[in-house]
């Protein structure tokens, strides 16, 4: 995977990631950390971490964090934000965490127009628990709990989180990005930055979905995984900005 060749942001601690080779979680952490540095809000940021492979992200981010129960990060973030409205509060969540067990929490945080930011890492699988089907797994995708492939007659089509949340008035900024190449990485960073700016302007809820790889549980090399993502995920989960408020600095 392409390494981003510049100094470690202050918002990241100097400890090695535990992620598998070719996993995108590490890149996404770095983008978030860079944005927090650039916005100069490290001092007042509180991150809320999920249950998933990024459960240990509190070891990596160099600002205050809370570790939430599986799926509940948006509710926890709501609690933090309501106590300290001046804090910059974000949740970082996987697809199982956000779109399965935590579906109610994310929908209602968005519906309330909660002034938080969500970074949503969609790798179409449950990474941490060893490759079970996620609500975002693709039709016919083989996982350990869909050994015969995801059967849409029984479990439906994968949930398109950005499209779904776009129907809610409280959600002010919604974008889907990827970090599969340097150009997309730059776009991803810009989107994450914008999502934090929406929060800083007090406009409402903002979410950035990042399409991501899980070479380990997809059973692929890092390179194959990027190829699979481009070929299979991107057509179903189109990249782009779904919603953007007016009056936010570009």
């Amino acid at each position: 995977m392409a390494e981003i060749a510049f100094a470690r942001p202050e918002s990241l601690r100097d400890v090695p990631f535990h992620y598998c080779p070719g996993c995108h979680h590490g890149i996404i952490h770095r983008l978030v950390a860079e944005v927090i540095d650039e916005l100069k809000v490290r001092d007042r940021t509180v991150g809320v971490m999920p249950v998933g492979c990024s459960v240990l992200a509190y070891d990596y981010f160099n600002f205050d964090t809370q570790e939430a129960a599986h799926g509940r990060a948006p509710a926890v973030a709501t609690g933090v934000k309501r106590v300290h409205p001046d804090n910059v509060v974000f949740s970082y969540q996987g697809d199982g965490d956000l779109a399965s067990i935590g579906c109610a929490e994310i929908v209602h945080a968005a519906a309330r127009g909660e002034k938080i930011t969500t970074v949503f890492v969609n790798n179409a699988i449950y990474g941490m628990t060893g490759g079970q089907m996620a609500p975002t797994s693709l039709p016919d995708q083989v996982t350990t709990t869909s050994p015969y492939g995801r059967k849409v007659e029984s479990v439906g089509m994968p949930i398109k989180v950005c499209e779904m949340l776009s129907t809610l008035d409280g959600a002010k900024y919604i974008a889907r990005v990827a970090v599969n190449n340097p150009a997309n990485m730059a776009k991803a960073k810009a989107a994450i930055k914008k999502a934090f700016e929406v929060q800083l302007s007090g406009l409402g809820f903002a979410i950035v979905e990042v399409l991501s790889t899980c070479p380990t549980n997809w059973g692929m090399s890092p390179l194959e995984a990027v190829g699979w993502m481009e070929k299979n995920m991107m057509p179903y989960y189109p990249l782009g900005v779904f919603k953007t408020p007016e009056g936010v600095a570009k």
Partner: peptide, 19 residues
């Protein structure tokens, strides 16, 4: 069921076996 360690082998077994 819903996956969780250390019982995921059970849900995975059922995913295979029930059909």
């Amino acid at each position: 069921g819903y996956p969780i360690t250390p019982q995921s082998e059970l849900i995975e077994y059922m995913a295979k076996r029930m059909p």
